[in-house]
Amino acid sequence: MSKITFEIDGKECTGKAGQTIVEAARDNGIYIPVLCWYEGMKPAGICRICTVRVGGRFMAACTTPVAEGMIVENEIPELEDMRKAIVEMLFVEGNHMCPTCEKSGNCELQALGYRYGLMAPRFPYLFPKRKMDATYTKIMIDTNRCVQCRRCVRGIVTKDGKHIFSMTNRSGHSTIVADPQLESKMSDELAKKAMDQCPVGAILKKEVGFAVPIGKRKYDVTPIGSEIQK
């Protein structure tokens, strides 16, 4: 595979042909925040939190492949503020009640809030009316917390390749749903995978809760991205 040299914030980086900016940056120890991107899953470019500037243009780093001589701007104040604004918008347009959420401490949206030192969103809260569905067998879906990254829709599949989750309705009313029949046959591992793959607390596995104490959760001590950053 041919080697590509490019630059992120002035740092010389190398990548492989066909790699996206997010993947290549990770290999070079540079963190670009992501929400809808998930390792090993085909990128979709939905959340735009990974937006970088390439040659003066804003591009989604998760869908843009690296190219020879590319000059990428990542951790610049302008982009960091735009990313923070996206986090704020996601907070106000759902009902994200961290104190009551089981995913708190392991939530990527919350962790991005911590990373950007978000004290309060600059936008007004919308308090939308959303539904919580606990009628499923293995999981619960709380659409109050859903950021519609579609990681579950894209990534949670049965052994014979059937997608368990899908989107329903349109525009501002669109939500995620699970196929009740496929869902009831989900293995415990797959249910756990669905919960872990959800960046927020929209998909929760039933019959376990608050298993990890405060102080030992994923983002309690170290910020999101610190495992990548060199």
Binding site: N95, M97, C98, P99, T100, A120, Y125, F127, K129, R130
Partner: peptide, 18 residues
């Protein structure tokens, strides 16, 4: 100074907002 989740977003009492 707005102190805490309830002051900032309504918090637990705001669960009645819907």
């Amino acid at each position: 100074i707005s102190l805490g989740e309830c002051a900032i977003m309504g918090g637990l009492p705001a669960m009645r907002n819907g």
